[in-house]
Amino acid sequence: MNEKPEFDRSTNFSSHAPAFLSVWEIDAYYDESYIVQHVSFNVHEGEILALLGRNGAGKTSTLRTIARVDDPELRHGEIWLDHQPLHKMKSHEAAGVGIGLVPEDRRIIPGLTVEENLKLAQIAPPIGWSFERLYELFPRLGERRKQEGVTLSGGEQQMLSIARALARDVKVLLLDEPYEGLAPVIVQEIAKTLDIIREQGITTVIVEQNAIAALNLADRAVILDTGSVVFDGSAKEVLDNKELREEYLAI
């Protein structure tokens, strides 16, 4: 069994408690463009972390690095999930130990119904939530299970994308801009759903330009600026600090 290194208890992190997900001094590149620069933070089990910053701050790149997708390239640092070394894995291996990435473009597969999209997610173990449980969480998907996924509304497609991640045995849900392009009432609905998911013990990292909505949902926040961490603390601290929000989030 892999041993989790001592760095997850370092005073460089926001908590001395052992972390569920530890990101330690990661450097990631697109070709020779240095995008993620010595980024470190901890996420505890069942916690929602808002990963925030202006456009181009490195938020999506950090999320993709954690998920171990091919781009960007991780050149330094370590990522650990519950004693598992993600930094040594490919994306399918990271998915196999519990990483679920919900990308910004949702990637609903054309030609497949809602239920077929979910079945495809369960084509290989480990299997996560049952269809019954997913339709209980997302009643609209149950009503539209035979409808082609790409014909759903934007909010319904986002629900399908999240449900598809949960169809696997997910431990950490990585959400990239889940509120983008959605009406405020749908944003509230998605937020309530993410709160229910938290109650199930699933850890969540959310990247979102709608920073206030993300902060109202999150327990903690990490703010990036030009690829580096400039704040790591409670979400309430960010909501209460107007100067911090104006400087790094432009809100």
Rank of each mutant, 00 (worst) to 15 (best):
K4Q: 14
S10W: 07
N12S: 12
S14D: 11
W24C: 05
Y29G: 00
Y34V: 05
V36F: 06
Q37A: 05
V39T: 08
S40D: 05
S40Y: 10
E47P: 07
E47G: 06
A50S: 08
A50G: 11
R54K: 15
R54W: 11
G56D: 03
G58A: 05
T65R: 06
A67R: 04
D70W: 06
D71S: 14
R75D: 03
I79L: 04
L81M: 04
L86P: 13
H87S: 07
M89V: 09
S91M: 15
A95W: 04
G98N: 05
L101V: 05
R106Y: 03
P110G: 09
L112T: 02
K119T: 10
A121M: 08
I123L: 15
I123H: 14
P125S: 07
P126H: 03
I127E: 10
S130L: 06
S130Q: 13
E132Y: 04
F138K: 07
E143K: 13
R144E: 10
Q147T: 14
S153M: 09
G154L: 07
E156Q: 15
E156D: 06
Q158L: 01
Q158Y: 02
M159A: 08
I162P: 00
L175I: 06
D176M: 00
A183C: 05
V185P: 00
I190N: 02
Q200H: 12
I206E: 00
A213R: 13
A214R: 08
N216M: 10
A221Y: 09
V222H: 00
D225K: 10
T226E: 15
G227S: 11
V229Y: 04
V230L: 06
F231S: 03
D232L: 02
A235L: 06
A235T: 09
E237I: 00
I251M: 15
